[in-house]
Design a protein around this nucleic acid. Structure first.
Lengths: 237, 237
DNA sequence: CACGATTGTGACCGACCGGTCACTTTTTGG
DNA sequence: CCAAAAAGTGACCGGTCGGTCACAATCGTG
């Protein structure tokens, strides 16, 4: 089995404003070293769950002393939280630009969100895989309280839109808003899994070799997306 | 975050015939001790991923020596594989009885499968949660090659049915069989997540306290199921 | 009962973990 | 140039892990 995908986070919006900061020591690091640290740490946490990820391996890969990590961060959890917020920020920068106002139908808007999500995956594979793991694979007790919020948020973010689309007649008003929200969020996630199984992508291998997550070209991906959106449209009309 | 659900395995059919057996030592154990061992081991592996689950904790809970485990099983992986096959067998005994021939429409058949799946969850919570973990949360390199097969199998198992329903006019023939299979399998899984978030079930807690996974009564669950099935029907018609 | 075979035991092994801290090295700025 | 402050270091700590093995207890059978 290869790790499965991502995309689930495309629709997260709420994102906390309180940025959890590492110690100033990390902040003061030259940009070059900082991004090298983030990259290496992200590689470890994208390929392992919280409990299995190893600080020892990270410092070995970086060629620095273990003590340095603890001058930058309080502990393993602090580092993990920083990486999480960092990646959420990166993701946001991809999705923020898509606004409902710029599209006349809900489904063209939905489709545009998806294309931006794919770009995020292509250009930020480590971020994307890490967030995927946080959202779907993680089950460590140490981070439990910090998980899962995004799925609820995604559901809630959809609800006002759904109510609106019901009024314009785009959505079937006899189905409860919650069920529709669940349906949309779930399918957004599942599209990525469909793409993965159809194109037989091995995310782990791509991560290890620094390649983008998807080898197939973007148009082929969007075609698969369109086929599924066709199903959604029919079911929610 | 609580662990999420299950049900995904409802539609698995293919199941290997080669039963991976523990050493005879385990086989010769009195039934009482055997089931106590399985129960305790299952509790550990239902609550932890492969890497995090601890043989040391299992023997502590059982009050036996660690060496005994290695007289019953080759190693941790052997034990895990045995538990996996054991649980798949238990699950099969719930689902095997449902046959397409006994239902005139695909959707009444689908619905019946679901009810049996819910019974499996209610009566075999540890099995169900363990299989859920194997199918959705596990990412240890040590078991990677043994994961995931069921999702492909579930997809493939659906395909002949879908082809058939296309001919009878129940399914839209313009959508590819693979996409429909993916859609059905994904939604089967997601229904459980919907139920969980709607009824705010904490699987982990229920497991620890030996309760069934769902507190809500079966009819309420089936009502939520029906609402989603209504969406599927519309989209695939 | 006796004695070989089977089963049960837990101290022990090497490996790895997150985290610490006395110490060295580098940077800063008067 | 030098001293004080900041950053970097890696041996070391206590702990947990999966797995082993010499030995003890128990069982089956003549």
């Amino acid at each position: 089995m290869t790790d499965r995908s991502l995309f689930g986070h495309i629709f997260v919006t709420g994102q906390s404003l309180l940025i959890i900061m590492p110690k100033e020591t990390f902040h003061n690091l030259p940009e070059e070293k900082k991004s090298q640290f983030i990259n290496t740490a992200l590689e470890e946490f994208a390929g392992n769950n919280f409990d299995t990820a190893s600080i020892t391996r990270i410092v070995k890969n970086l060629g620095i002393a273990k003590g340095s990590v603890y001058q930058y961060f309080e502990d393993k959890l602090d580092l993990w939280l920083y990486l999480k917020e960092y990646c959420e920020g990166v993701k946001m920068s991809y999705v923020r630009s898509v606004s409902r106002r710029d599209y006349d139908s809900f489904w063209s808007y939905y489709r545009a969100m998806f294309r931006h999500g794919i770009n995020f995956d292509l250009e930020q594979p480590r971020c994307s895989l890490f967030l995927y793991r946080v959202g779907f694979k993680e089950s460590s007790r140490q981070v439990r309280e910090y998980l899962d919020s995004w799925k609820k948020k995604a559901n809630e973010a959809f609800m006002p839109w759904i109510e609106h689309e019901k009024k314009t007649g785009a959505f079937d008003p006899s189905v409860s808003t919650e069920t529709i929200a669940h349906f949309l969020v779930t399918m957004s996630i599942s599209i990525a899994e469909l793409l993965q199984s159809r194109y037989k992508v091995d995310f782990d291998e791509n991560i290890r070799e620094g390649k983008p997550l998807f080898a197939a070209d973007e148009e082929a991906l969007m075609q698969a997306v369109d086929e599924l959106i066709y199903l959604f449209e029919k079911s929610l009309k």
